[in-house]
Amino acid sequence: MPLLTCNDLTVSYAPSAKPVVDGVSVQFADGRFTALVGPNGCGKSTLIKAIMGFLPASSGSVLLNDTPLHGIGRRELAKRVAYLPQENYCPDYITLGELVELGGYARYSLFGGPGERDRALFMDALATVGLEGMASKPVNALSGGQRQRAWIAMILAQDADTILLDEPVNHLDVHYQYAILALIRSLTQRGKTIVAVLHDLNLTSAFADEVVMMHDGKVVSHSDTRTTITADNVRRVFDFDADVFIRDERLVCLPRNRTDVVT
């Protein structure tokens, strides 16, 4: 049963401008890792922000389990959907423990703080991302890969069933790209629904269950990785000739000719 649904969603930055997200209807399957791919400016991040309600939709709707997601208030939305922006800023001197505790904010009452259940969840979140025992470390003293895991721990502490991530492996070296994506993929086994904006098609095929390929604000293809990442689709959306082949049951996508890709 599909969980998160966009119906004919259209978003423009100015009333007269060309829509950045243009009548997108898409369903993100429950408990699956869906990758959003497409060239720069195709509307991937904008779609995520529109789902979060940061950008007003000029038409269309976003439903979670058949109920509208917008207009329920920030707190209620945060209990259902978590979001990791592309760039994250942490003030100096904030510790990992404080970061994770703030992640659970939506569940706290005005004068109360985290309870027993919350604290257990924090420990679990830190253990899941492999940062247990580091709660007293300042976030800004962590390495790049550790910091990205810290942000994911904060999101896990939020305990939402749907998690949207905007380029979660940006700026990371290959090792950490694999580690973070493996971690994100493992979350689907806990029943989380993952939607992540990714750039690398090989990383996408290695880790995602489904791919939504976008071009010019529209969804071009939405299916499993092998159906979506094809030479035809890559030609049409990314504008280069690709060799797409299966090796050891895994899809690999590389440019056919190194001199062929022109800017």
């Binding site: 309600g53 922006p85 992640g103």
Partner: peptide
């Protein structure tokens, strides 16, 4: 932490 980060955590 920034507007979007705070809003996504449930802050008005």
């Amino acid at each position: 932490f920034g507007r979007e980060k705070a809003a996504s955590a449930g802050v008005d």
